[in-house]
Design a protein around this nucleic acid. Structure first.
Lengths: 190, 190, 190, 190
DNA sequence: CATGAATGAGTTTTCATTCAT
DNA sequence: CATGAATGAAAACTCATTCAT
């Protein structure tokens, strides 16, 4: 995807990500984006087809970085599926802390057509975890009757920790609590 | 002489909830709401101060129903805190299935001033679960070093199941998977 | 003009006059009028055809009182045309002090069709003064090459005194200054 | 790249002045203004903050032109205060003939907050005349016990001549009648 | 007659997108 | 390529008027 000025493109995306992280979609004006990126408003349309497309690229880009990281980790043979799972959770927590509103963004602000591109990413994330879980099940490391649900739960837990957790909570704290839950739940052995 | 009609108010809220559940805030026109409720546009302004207020009422109302149900269940002495926890999760799953987008709505569509009313509800939800967890810990039924995080995880898991789970998934399926997780995690005993 | 409840009609007119004197036409809501008159909004439409008609009646009514007073004074043989002129000015000043914004109201708030009814009244006022001036000219009491202009000037002066004069200015002060001007102007005899 | 166009701004003001002179504030739609100025509706909002602001600028601008002209004339040492007074009246009459409704506009159409800017101008106009009158009194050219009232009368007379005078009346006719009145009134010397 | 809830045409204002320079 | 002035469709909200009770 070679563009006239790849640098400028990056700047716009970075600046836009900032704005979209702070305000809801409809409160972020392209005037603001242009001003913050120090470019003319028309320039935005050289690099992005529309506000929706800019927004979409923004979110998917961040997402894709995560998904790539996850893929890479998965491919790098881990010592066990459980260890891999722990690593992925740590990865996820760190990423989520950096993009605290990225999942909110997925909300429903965007045009339905574009929305699907986002849902698909979110789903892929689940699929990654599901795969690891299933392999763990096969390997006897994991016992889970509904791994596809658990796979959805994991990112959801991480996100809720980041978004609703008390101030000062570290990504590691969240990750370790998720792991604890997956390890033994919270029920006392009586 | 006609009297202000509580029935009509309900109708508007119901109809609006439908629309806001299907489309993002800015795509729901008051024209649509009025048309769907079979009332004039001006009528909306008799019952609600503004679009924002209508929307807020919509979400908080649904939320408050849930919170009330939860409070009631908590007060009705349960046989154990664990049983109570299971009940609340079932309750939550059922409610969430009925309002699949209610948490998304909380996202970032609404005016910042009003947004707080929602955040506060979400927080109260966490507080309820946290209280039950802590009591469980005291009673020796539960082992959890970070109950306030777990309390956030629970609604998040339920929501992710509803929103991203495969079609045809029942509220009960989700609830039971959450309970399973909380009970023993997914790690195999090797 | 016998109406169901002449009293209620009067109340509405009085109350509306108050409101229209304080705020521009479009800021006076019929809701306000109805509330202030302690009647239902629909009731207004029993007594008046429309907001415009109510407004029109309001202004013309006050005007007609003035015009009637003037006519009466004119018919009552005065000792001289000059004395009559002085009396009319005093009358006018007193009336204007009671309806300070009545001429502003004539401004251009109202529907063009209705507007003419007002212009006509204002003109009639000029005509009254013009008639007196002309008779004064014939009687040799007055020297004026343009009595129809002077006739317009008189109400204008009185109004400006009421509207823009310093607080606490009495109707008599204004009237007497107008009379002074008409008597000898302000030019020094050198 | 286009530059903000001062010419366009002028066009809009001129066109808007025309419209506001013919119709009351609330009957002048920004659609009309935009159409008449041959610009898009949004363009109006580039040059003016709101309808109110456009309107205010319109009126104050015209007023300020007059006030500047008057100031200039006053500073240019006149042969006598009386001659100066005559000049100012002529100036005023000419201006008023060009903006027949400018004083009506001041009426009560505009938002209260903005209204003050106008009242202040009208007052300044009075102050100018008052200053000249007082100097004339000191110089023995003028005899007037209430110059501040006379100062209010002068614009009022001119205006009434323009607004209510017969068709075809020239600014000069009005000015000369005002001067005549100020010179010797209309009372016959018997 | 009296009421005030209901109505919806009418207005201002916003903002993504275009395009002349 | 870059710009930012221009555009106008779209949307929230108002309020005179109607009409069921």
């Amino acid at each position: 995807m070679q563009r006239p000025d790849e640098e400028k493109r990056k700047t716009i995306l970075r600046v836009a990500r900032d704005l979209f992280s702070r305000k809801p979609y409809h409160e972020v004006l392209l005037d603001d984006v242009a001003a913050a990126a120090r470019v003319g408003k028309g320039t935005l349309y050289i690099y992005f087809e529309s506000k929706d497309h800019l927004y979409l690229e923004l979110v998917t880009e961040a997402f894709d970085v995560l998904l790539d990281d996850i893929d890479e980790r998965i491919r790098a043979d881990a010592e066990s599926n459980w260890k891999l799972l722990e690593d992925l959770i740590a990865l996820l927590a760190k990423w989520m802390a950096k993009h605290p509103t990225m999942f909110d963004l997925m909300g429903s602000n965007i045009h339905p057509v574009r929305r699907d591109a986002l849902k698909q990413r979110r789903r892929r994330l689940g699929v990654c975890f599901e795969a690891v879980l299933r392999r763990g099940v096969e390997a006897g490391e994991i016992v889970d009757a509904q791994p596809e649900l658990t796979a959805q739960f994991i990112p959801a837990m991480v996100r809720s920790g980041v978004v609703y957790g008390r101030r000062g909570l570290k990504a590691d704290d969240i990750a370790s609590q998720v792991v604890t839950l997956l390890t033994r739940g919270v029920r006392g052995r009586s």
